[in-house]
């Protein structure tokens, strides 16, 4: 465990290029910032601003072209793809806009999936998955498949899956993009509670101001650069 307040995430001069038919597209043009453990950060910006690219890099799904990324003191750029997978499994939880649950598996099996890759035995992972579902208020729905659940419920199953291996960071990419305002509020309340009560670091990508208002820090991207990094007052939520 890092010291509270010490940067859990530290990036310096992060750049990411994509080669396209027309040449090289610079998605990120030098981003440097730190995120401390226990923070709740919203990342905002128009589409194409680089916020999703940034998120993929932070989530260890991709590697930077230049610059460095330290996660809990570890230089992510030097890790092998297996080590990145292990990092994603243990330290990171993902919540996506489209939920990204496996449609043929029950809620319980979906939540247990990361535990399978963590090498946990069948019974143990079912127990833990059930506990996670209860944490998001879906203990009764563990044997439903995603199609039998509402959008809000599916997103809560996805959050339970993100929590399954007890990671320290959760990355959420437009988690309320497919939800109505009422269920959005429920999901955001759940995120806030996880952050406040359990100290889970939350990084949230959104383009909706009212969703970003749940966070306590807002980082704004434009053209691959950070143009604004401000604290959000509690009152705004």
């Amino acid at each position: 465990m890092a010291v509270p307040g010490a940067p859990l995430i530290e990036v310096a001069n992060l750049e990411k290029d994509y080669s396209t038919g027309a040449g090289v597209f610079q998605a990120l043009r030098g981003v440097s910032l730190g995120i401390a453990e226990g923070e709740f950060v919203a990342i905002m910006g128009a589409s194409g601003s680089g916020k999703s690219t940034f998120m993929n890099l932070l989530g260890c799904l991709d590697r930077p072209t230049r610059g460095s990324y330290h996660l809990d003191g570890q230089d992510v750029g030097r890790l092998s793809s297996d080590q990145l997978a292990a990092l994603r499994n243990r330290e990171i939880g993902f919540v996506f806009q489209g939920f990204n649950l496996l449609p043929k598996l029950t809620a319980l099996d979906n939540v247990a999936l990361p535990l399978m890759y963590a090498g946990m035995g069948r019974e143990a992972r079912r127990r833990q998955a059930q506990a996670m579902l209860e944490r998001v208020g879906l203990g009764e729905r563990s044997h439903h498949t995603p199609l039998q659940l509402s959008g809000g419920q599916q997103q809560r199953v996805a959050i339970a899956r993100a929590l399954a291996t007890r990671p320290r960071i959760i990355f959420a990419d437009e988690p309320t993009g497919n939800l109505d305002s009422e269920t959005s509020r429920q999901v955001m309340d759940l995120f806030s509670r996880l952050n406040r009560e359990e100290g889970i670091t939350l990084v949230l990508v959104t383009h909706e101001a009212d969703i970003a208002a749940y966070a306590r820090r807002c980082i704004r991207f434009q053209d691959g650069r950070v143009i604004e990094d401000t604290a959000v007052t509690e009152a705004a939520a």
Binding site: G59, L61, S81, D82, A85, A86, R88, N89, R90, F94, N100, L101, L102, L113, P114, Y117, A118, R161, T165
Partner: peptide, 9 residues
């Protein structure tokens, strides 16, 4: 999805 939640290659 499997890779994102920790499946190695």
């Amino acid at each position: 999805i499997r890779m994102a939640i920790g499946a190695r290659r």
